[in-house]
Write a protein that binds this DNA or RNA. Sequence first.
DNA 1: ATTCAAAATGACAGCGCTAACAAATTTTTC
DNA 2: GAAAAATTTGTTAGCGCTGTCATTTTGAAT
Lengths: 360, 360
Amino acid sequence: MHQKRQRPTTGRITINDVAERSGVSIKTVSRVLNNEPSVRPSTRARVEAAVRALDYSPNPSARGLAGTQSRMIGLIYDNPSPNYLFRTITGVLEACNGAGYALSLQAPNPDEPDLAESVTRFVSQSRVDGLLLIPPVGDVVAVLDALEAIGLPYARVSPLDGRPGLGVSVDDRHASAQVVAHLTGLGHRRIGFISGHPEHGATQSRLEGYRLGLLRKDLDFERELVVGGRFDLESGRRAGAYFLDMENPPTAIFASNDEMAAGLLQVALERGWRIPEQLSIAGFDDTPLSRTLWPPLTTVHQPIRHMALRATELLLENLAENLHENLDIHGHAGSKRLGSRVEVFDAPLVERATTAPPPD
Amino acid sequence: MHQKRQRPTTGRITINDVAERSGVSIKTVSRVLNNEPSVRPSTRARVEAAVRALDYSPNPSARGLAGTQSRMIGLIYDNPSPNYLFRTITGVLEACNGAGYALSLQAPNPDEPDLAESVTRFVSQSRVDGLLLIPPVGDVVAVLDALEAIGLPYARVSPLDGRPGLGVSVDDRHASAQVVAHLTGLGHRRIGFISGHPEHGATQSRLEGYRLGLLRKDLDFERELVVGGRFDLESGRRAGAYFLDMENPPTAIFASNDEMAAGLLQVALERGWRIPEQLSIAGFDDTPLSRTLWPPLTTVHQPIRHMALRATELLLENLAENLHENLDIHGHAGSKRLGSRVEVFDAPLVERATTAPPPD
DNA sequence: ATTCAAAATGACAGCGCTAACAAATTTTTC
DNA sequence: GAAAAATTTGTTAGCGCTGTCATTTTGAAT
């Protein structure tokens, strides 16, 4: 018996097997797989049965090659906190799983100075259908321009600018003002503020919220009560040292993220201050840290997981729309419309144990 | 002028363009792209020039379909800490970027009770070339069996069992004993231990290390000085309450991860204990938390990023080997050899501010 | 019944690449 | 310098799907 040498076939089940078993053409199987209309319910059922019986799942490479989508979205992160990234990924994956999309992760090469370049390369190498951008990458105009130039849909989490596009955000300004309201409500009148990294989007709006909060209580904005930080522990410590060294230190300090609040707390404890009796401290973000510190930190909760989930949904919806609109497009390669939609989430104050009425 | 209706071609540059421009066949371009031997250096240079000039990058779908690899590896995580996942991803991505691989992330569906099933589905849907497993998924025998059944290469970070395969780990036992040595060196003789989640691999070896450390100093292992935790804050608090309520509490407590140490620290501070003067505390993992707490935590550093990087390298090396060994394989579909290699990393003790000589 | 539109299905090309093999070229050997 | 061996290059056939368009079937309207 002579067997002709064959290319070692993968041995996997293909669309042909499903077609054969259900007695239809492969095109019809394809239609069922892609949920296209105009398939008789009875036929659809038969095909679905065969799919299940054979435990078939379509080859993504073949789909990607033949079709126009890769069913994969990318997430690019530059320098988020571990916790932020974790919650984001969790949300994104939730959305992806429901929709049959895969998630490809990428961090830009730190050696590559040109971020937009890095992003473009990733996109052209991985052929994702769309991109999810989280801060701070999501705020780099050059990146967004580059993506629009190549016509790749994207959605942003917490964009700071008013640029049209898909995104979800939180009203940082409002939340920040709420913190001040909480503090003034306790009786504080001298409230320090540690602002964030100058290049982070949220920095500005949180500062504005602080001012707004003061304004609402007719409190003066005092320059000496605001110090610039970088969203990290060390800058929180520096700011703490600055405030505690003042002749007339504030009775409450609002750090615009939890990490800096932790730094501030360290310095205060180190110097023997009793928190919150002698000094109230508030943070922002509600990272797990805020519950791990002692005393547990009063802070603002950011629904990051949920925001990421929703941003992904917006992106995937957009991808689906673009797909159907393909008919209208005449040769304009990559003339995808991004649409514009930003959903705003609530960021509620979480009162824990670092805030109390001022001494006296 | 009548233009024939064409399928809207992607407009992208393909291997044909590169071949044309460099005056060779597409197969030669393919050879250059895949770093295959037997291409004259001069030809190679010409092709590479064309690739650069056209800014060409191969279509991964086409490669995946025509070839045997997808150049994508998967990372499955079940329930790691945000920080652990972050450091892992960072390391994995470093390795991937260097090798031209993409990373696909996946978390098993929490509703799906059968983890192995979840993993298998992910693998067959995404067609990754290999998988990276981190604890606790990496310790589930059913998952490993399933992967071996379908012949998918994988590498594990911190595997606990002696199962042959690719992996990197840390000598938890040794590191743990080191902590005890540090404590006894300071003069402690009564050392409490908070053990970890019973289903985590490290739990057992860290406990063994604790016993070993005691043994070396001829100290008795006392049942009442060991309490079970779950690697989370709350269990650290419970354990703390237990120890501090004892008639004769230990002078030092070794929590087998940082999170539990933080819980313990909370309870101690809450009750007005001075740390480290009245009680020494040590953790394990060296998460950022350990620097953020006050006082900063003495702990054991785990080189997670580096371990993940190395595990990925092992996996990718294995993939490359399998590729070349294809010749030897006769019809045994998926008869990939995993090889066996486990690299052990050092986990050094980091002395910070929660440990000091015992009172008296 | 008969005609016609609408809905359902199928045939077939080809996406961009790699595997297998064939052919052409260069190098070595005597 | 011719033959043999080794090296380099090219030709061709798919991989498993989806897009286009042709064909068949169905259901309604006459």
